[in-house]
Computed example of a mutant assay.
Amino acid sequence: MANFLTLNGKRALVTAGTKGAGAATVELFRELGAKVLTTARSRPEGLPEAFFIAADLTTGEGCAKVAEAAHQRLGGVDIIVHMLGGSSAPAGGFAALTDDQWQTELDLNLLPAVRLDRQLVPGMVEQGGGVVVHVSSIQRVLPLPESTTAYAAAKAALSTYSKALSKEVSPRGVRVVRVAPGWIETEAAVRYAQRLADQAGTDYEGGKKIIMQALGGIPLGRPAKPEEVASLIAFLASDRAAAITGAEYVIDGGTVPTS
């Protein structure tokens, strides 16, 4: 066995791969030799069109468009990384969430993975191998009731779905794993921390401390970097992790107080 990590020759689809941990995953996968197709609602400047498909994955039509592009441009996939996720729900706790807001959270955090897997995993089964990585969140076990109840519930549903899928397709050669990040220091997170800092009359480091306190503390003392999340995903997607399936890997600096 080679003594280094490689994804040489692998065909990968990474959703939401133009920013944050998604962009870091796309970059690392390509460095490791994978042929990567990524997707978002719009293509950023500088990203070759051949490696990108614009689509709205919160719709069935958007998922079908991406699946078709994966077949046409890659000839199928060996790895799927479901990075897409987020929340636009208002603050105010459970009573502030309407049916439409609940549906929006499910459409963003659960159903894209369900739809794309339904269209692409059968091809993995047919070819006798593949890896599916569902990116969940520590909030599935550590929700923030003021603002992320629906997001956390959708990510919990994603995790349960992922476990069920792993039990179904792992005997046929397809590994399914979950990665649960805590707070990641993405571009959006930096802007949020700076906004909190401005409101509190402190600096960026002070803004970070406000977020960490809201999470109950991060023993490591800092958020994860996008590149660190990407490294974990790359290992799990590689042949070096060939005996791993059905498991969830937390990368949160120790935020969740119990395993």
Rank of each mutant, 00 (worst) to 15 (best):
V256I: 02
G123Y: 07
T58Q: 07
F235V: 13
Q213G: 14
A50W: 09
V114D: 06
T148Q: 03
V229D: 03
L84P: 02
G182A: 13
T58N: 06
V131S: 11
S88T: 08
A21G: 01
Q199S: 06
Q119G: 04
L236W: 14
L142W: 08
G22Y: 00
R178H: 14
T149P: 05
I79S: 08
P145Y: 11
H71G: 13
A50M: 02
T98Q: 05
E45P: 08
R30I: 06
Q199H: 04
A34W: 04
E185L: 15
G207Y: 00
L7C: 08
G85L: 02
L13N: 03
D78G: 03
P122R: 10
A67H: 11
P219F: 10
T245C: 06
N8D: 10
L32N: 07
S87F: 09
Y161Q: 06
V125E: 00
I244P: 14
V176T: 09
L108T: 04
R43Y: 08
L13A: 07
G92A: 02
V26W: 07
I53N: 09
M212A: 13
A200K: 04
L120E: 06
R11Y: 02
L97G: 03
A180K: 15
G76I: 08
P143K: 07
G75C: 04
G254S: 00
A69V: 11
G254M: 01
Q139D: 04
G86T: 01
V179K: 12
D198L: 03
G182I: 12
T258C: 00
L57G: 11
E248S: 12
F94Y: 13
L142G: 08
Q139S: 07
A193T: 01
E27C: 01
A180H: 15
G253L: 03
T160Q: 13
I244D: 08
A214M: 04
R30S: 06
T25Q: 01
A188R: 15
D78M: 11
F94S: 04
P257T: 03
L5G: 04
T39E: 07
G129W: 11
A95E: 09
Q119E: 13
L158E: 12
S166T: 14
M83P: 06
S238F: 08
L120D: 07
S259G: 02
A200I: 01
S238G: 06
E146R: 09
F4K: 13
K35I: 01
V77I: 15
V133M: 08
L142A: 09
L165P: 10
Q213H: 15
R175I: 14
G207S: 03
